[in-house]
Computed example of a mutant assay.
Amino acid sequence: MKLVKVYVTLKESVLDAQGEAIKSAIQTMGYNQISDVHMGKYFELKFENDYANLEKDVDLICDDLLANPNVETYRYEILEGE
């Protein structure tokens, strides 16, 4: 089994309002050393070991469903699952 971990985040040019709100809350708690917070999404996809078009299909799934290519970017890693 292949385990694909997908990380989706906003592009750097897009204002991360949730990240800013979280940063403000953290600083209110007294952790003033925090200079930036970014919010994102995380997905785990499991595929059979003999999946022929794994990387191509993961890219298509991310582009078509998991990430909004206008405002988000993604990266993923492929691991051997159990």
Rank of each mutant, 00 (worst) to 15 (best):
42 Y>R: 13
42 Y>M: 06
42 Y>H: 14
42 Y>A: 04
43 F>D: 03
43 F>G: 04
43 F>A: 04
44 E>N: 11
44 E>S: 05
44 E>T: 09
44 E>Q: 13
44 E>F: 07
46 K>I: 05
46 K>F: 10
46 K>Q: 13
47 F>C: 12
47 F>T: 08
47 F>I: 03
47 F>W: 08
48 E>W: 02
48 E>T: 06
48 E>M: 05
48 E>Q: 13
49 N>L: 10
49 N>P: 14
49 N>D: 13
50 D>L: 09
50 D>K: 15
51 Y>Q: 14
51 Y>C: 15
51 Y>K: 14
51 Y>L: 10
52 A>F: 07
52 A>R: 14
53 N>C: 06
53 N>W: 03
53 N>E: 14
53 N>Q: 14
54 L>V: 07
54 L>K: 08
54 L>M: 12
54 L>H: 07
55 E>L: 09
55 E>W: 02
55 E>G: 05
56 K>T: 00
57 D>R: 03
58 V>A: 01
58 V>D: 01
58 V>M: 03
58 V>F: 02
59 D>V: 00
59 D>N: 13
60 L>I: 08
60 L>R: 15
62 C>Q: 09
62 C>I: 00
63 D>Q: 15
63 D>M: 08
63 D>F: 05
64 D>L: 07
64 D>A: 08
64 D>Q: 13
64 D>T: 11
65 L>V: 04
66 L>W: 01
67 A>C: 08
68 N>L: 01
68 N>M: 07
68 N>I: 02
68 N>V: 00
68 N>K: 10
68 N>S: 10
68 N>C: 02
68 N>F: 02
69 P>S: 04
70 N>H: 11
70 N>V: 09
71 V>A: 06
71 V>K: 11
71 V>N: 09
72 E>V: 02
72 E>S: 09
72 E>Y: 07
